[in-house]
Design a protein around this nucleic acid. Structure first.
Lengths: 225, 225
DNA sequence: CCAAAAGTGTTTTAATTACACCCATGC
DNA sequence: GCATGGGTGTAATTAAAACACTTTTGG
């Protein structure tokens, strides 16, 4: 016998990517939102998500719902928090929220979707439910985690210059970093492998690096241990 | 109209406390478990918990269920992770797991309860469901968090000596710490207020300290901001 | 040649570690 | 007195930060 419950379980995802600034230097953290087409909060923007399937693991549900609503496939996906306040929705919904990273080139997929738009994380409108609060927390986690793990990888292609890597850090942390010290820090962390390729075009060619896949990307929670 | 679902939401808590070692020096991390009296996993030990109430917030459910099953009231409570693998239980259950700290003197309350016993965190038997995995993750979080926050507070009375505080760190981290350097670190952190009281009894009396309540105990997640 | 980014070197500061040493109490 | 933990001082090591400087390309 299977009991039923009047508490529903949803899964949502805060998806971060980077967008090159129009001014040319630097990038901004952006995220895709979906316009709600029904009550509650019809017309407001909300995080992509959906209901948890009966035969579906939590992370699979996160990947599925964000693919269905935005067309995106994340390069990094990690559980953020379970939100379950009684008054966060007219009906009782517990949302298992994930956060994800997608590379800027992959982010194009979401532009083709209807009712999906990218927003600058620094200037969001009022969102549906408690989604403003959720995004704030995800941003805090992103900034925090970039300091002690290699998640910046999730926002870059396979090969990249140190300047491009530094740009990712600068966009997330919101401050400039000393190129000389940044170089030494990532070199000492022993997570980068220099290639024989160079990125040319601007001025002095910059060496391309790639991540050492022997090293774990980041702690993804209890399930990866 | 309210839809129903065949996914149920449970709340469980990993409760940590300290128990003085029989040898006299040092302490061990211990946690209370509840013996299951019904299937599945009847007879095995499991984390205290219960079903989420329809009109109950997640953290309230964690506090309620751990009080009902163990009689404990935690001095610190924080969400750990949401576990929802399809095969973690015969029926579909998503468990929102919390972790908590109780002071050793308060831990006595759980000894009076039937079907509750304290176990050394370092040597647990096989537990019901995926609870071994959950405890491992909670231990990792505890050890991690003690390094950058003041959660040790949650395992000590209002006033304590630096040696007692150091014992908490040593029990959690599982290694000895230099008393001299430990003293300087906590003094420089500016979270302790020296009192005029001294703990006498052994040899040279040790000054009692208390925590500065102006400083936040620790990040408790998105809801405390 | 010049501008600009790539990359190296050097100095200073701060934090961590290791460990010697003095102090105050119970016995 | 003396053993023991409380508490202070200090030198060595390591990491972070600030910044001058050299190198290499496109124009």
């Amino acid at each position: 016998m299977t009991r039923t419950s009047d508490i529903r379980v949803a899964v949502s995802t805060v998806i971060f990517s980077l967008r090159r600034l129009a001014s040319g230097d630097g990038a901004a953290v952006v995220l895709p939102l979906v316009k709600r087409t029904r009550d509650p909060f019809e017309g407001l923007w909300a995080l992509p998500g959906g209901w948890l399937g009966t035969d579906e693991n939590l992370d699979a549900a996160a990947a599925r719902t964000l693919a269905e609503t935005t067309g995106l496939a994340p390069s990094y996906l990690e559980q953020l928090y379970a939100f379950g306040a009684v008054d966060r929705s007219p009906s009782r919904v517990v949302s298992i929220v994930y956060w994800a990273l997608v590379r800027p080139d992959e982010a194009e997929a979401a532009h083709a979707q209807h009712n999906v738009a990218w927003f600058d994380a620094a200037s969001l409108p009022t969102l549906a439910f408690d989604h403003n609060q959720i995004v704030d927390y995800a941003l805090w986690r992103l900034r925090n985690k970039v300091g002690y793990s290699r998640i910046a990888h999730g926002l870059l292609p396979a090969e990249f210059t140190l300047a491009e890597l530094r740009e990712v850090y600068e966009a997330i942390l919101g401050k400039r970093l000393d190129p000389a010290n940044f170089r030494r820090q990532v070199e000492n962390s022993a997570t980068l492998i220099p290639t024989d390729q160079f990125r040319t075009g601007s001025h002095r060619p910059a060496r391309l690096y790639r991540y050492d896949h022997e090293v774990e990307l980041a702690d993804r929670g209890p399930l990866s241990r």
